[in-house]
Amino acid sequence: MYVCSKFNLMGTNQLYKGSLSTIILKLLGEKGRMYGYQITQEVKAISAGEYMITEGALYPMLHKLEAQGMLTVEIEMTGNRMRKYYSITKNGKKEVVDRMTEMESFIRNMQSLLNPKIDLA
């Protein structure tokens, strides 16, 4: 519902939805501190419109990661308003390494399951 993709009908939606927290953690790990609007824009830019994180999915996930201690926040004045910046914590960095390893091994396993190499020898 919240993660729109051009592959919606194929069910790819669920795959992206499940990876949302990893995407956010990875992004913050690479870019340093960011605010909500900026995260949405960055995800849109790196995915080149392939899929899009909507605000209705993004903010609940940011709040969840904050509650889990993966992210930390700072609030600062920007122009005439306050802005909330998210940064990744030590626990968050560890989590992103674990998740990336997990994801890589999942992809490897799926590839070998779906494209088995037939040994003719």
């Binding site: 605010y35 909500g36 609007y37 605000e55 903010y59 609030i75 920007t78 308003r81 306050m82 802005r83 909330k84």
Partner: peptide, 8 residues
């Protein structure tokens, strides 16, 4: 605060 910044 967060939503105001986003909308602004």
């Amino acid at each position: 605060t967060e939503l105001v910044d986003h909308l602004a």
